[in-house]
Amino acid sequence: MSERSATDQPSMIDWDFAVSFGARTAKRPPEITPEDAAQAVAELRAGAARSAELVNDWCELGGEVGLAPLLVVDREGWIRANASTFAMMTEPMVDRITSKSARRGITHAIGSKATGGEVGALLGFLSSRILGQFDPFHGEHGRLMLVAPNVVQVERDLDVDPAVFRLWVCLHEEAHRVQFTSVPWLADHVRGLVQRLTETVDTSSFTPEKIKDVLATVRGNAERPSGGLAEALSSPAQRALIDEVTGVMSLLEGHADFVMDAVGNEAIGPDAVAVVRAKFNERRKGLGSIDKLVRRLLGLEAKAAQYRDGYRFVETVVGQVGKDGFNAVFSSPETLPSKAEILDPDAWIARIHPQNAEQEQSE
């Protein structure tokens, strides 16, 4: 992708440099022979194709199978794809920061390559940790990406059966593809939340002193999962939006995790799924102290909590009102759970299925 076209304001981020710098700073991929690499790619493609029917049938959301295209990529391919998405989603905030910075001369002092390098470093760090991703904002139906070297690396680290792990990962990502392609309003709703968040960022918060204070707070607060710099720099109004985004993302990630286990129990076997799930959950806690610190700064600990809390929400709701009752969550934006309801599934059931809640109380 090329840097944003010239306007009356200078560009704040050199996206081409972000991609190249991210690719250079990303961790080296695992050592693998060309034959094994080709087999991994083939198995991921086959796993995605098999998962499409399995997940779509299990979810019963009435969507069509395989609407969104599938890409099996390396780390640089993931960086390039996400740079495009980041540029699109952050454009309102970048425009505002660029405008104010230009008047103070900061843009010229720092330069678009410096900020591009910061974004690239973030993308480079994340590129070795993402196994797969559904991008709902690309094209008409979104796109599904599987990052082959990362899948190979993690299956080796966990010492699990590659065939089992590859299919299991595909089940999770396919669940996201089913969510967005079966629920027509969902992508626009999520896009709207993110845009509202970026458009309301108080750009005066982006000062060296403020960021230094936030870094100290994030490092020192070990009592709760951190939402990272974005949450710490936000205003009360923005934190309300963040809570709304968190509720939606917790639902989507928890639902995908629940589906991958439920379908995996049938397609792979409950014993194999239990082994992979236990090892994978340990991995989500982070590795060394440096990795854990970076995860806190980026809000990845909060991301792990989204998986856990969302899974419990889906498990509880399906257990009480069944799959059909749970699927009411996708009826409209109003039926989505709030962040508070994610932590209290009974409250969501009482709001959406009051008759069921009353019956539970009478019993």
Rank of each mutant, 00 (worst) to 15 (best):
G228R: 01
W185E: 01
E301F: 15
W78A: 04
M1P: 14
F206P: 06
E31C: 05
T90E: 13
A26D: 03
V190I: 14
G192H: 06
I97V: 15
L54R: 04
S234C: 06
D346T: 05
E334Y: 08
R103V: 15
K303F: 15
F134P: 08
E253H: 04
A38R: 10
S112T: 01
E174D: 09
E244R: 10
L44W: 10
P208D: 03
A232D: 13
S289L: 13
E301Q: 14
F165R: 02
I268G: 07
G310R: 02
V154S: 00
A42E: 13
T98Q: 10
V160K: 07
R196A: 12
G319V: 10
D346H: 09
A237F: 08
L193K: 05
I268N: 01
T33C: 04
A328Q: 09
M93K: 08
E266T: 12
R45L: 14
G220K: 01
T107F: 14
S205L: 03
K212S: 13
V263Y: 14
A232M: 11
T203C: 11
L293W: 14
M93Q: 11
Q238A: 12
P10W: 02
R45A: 08
E341Y: 10
A262R: 14
Q39I: 12
N56A: 14
V259P: 11
P34N: 01
A340F: 14
E253S: 06
L233S: 03
Y307I: 06
H141F: 13
V152P: 04
L298K: 01
G124K: 00
L122S: 05
L252F: 13
Q133W: 04
V294H: 04
L252Y: 09
W348E: 02
V65H: 02
L336I: 11
M145R: 12
S84V: 14
E244S: 08
L336S: 01
V151K: 01
G228Y: 05
P149Q: 05
E209V: 12
S182R: 03
S127G: 00
D74C: 09
L297N: 02
L54P: 05
R219L: 15
S289H: 07
C170P: 12
R283G: 10
G322S: 08
E282C: 01
G264K: 07
F125M: 00
A350Y: 09
E31L: 14
V147N: 06
A102P: 10
L146V: 13
A121E: 06
A163E: 12
A216F: 13
M12D: 05
A216E: 11
I242P: 04
S84E: 15
G120R: 02
P345M: 00
G66C: 06
P225M: 00
S5K: 05
A52K: 03
E363L: 15
L300M: 15
K27P: 09
L251C: 07
G228T: 02
A49L: 12
N221W: 13
I130P: 06
V154F: 13
V273S: 01
S338K: 05
E209P: 05
A230T: 13
E76S: 07
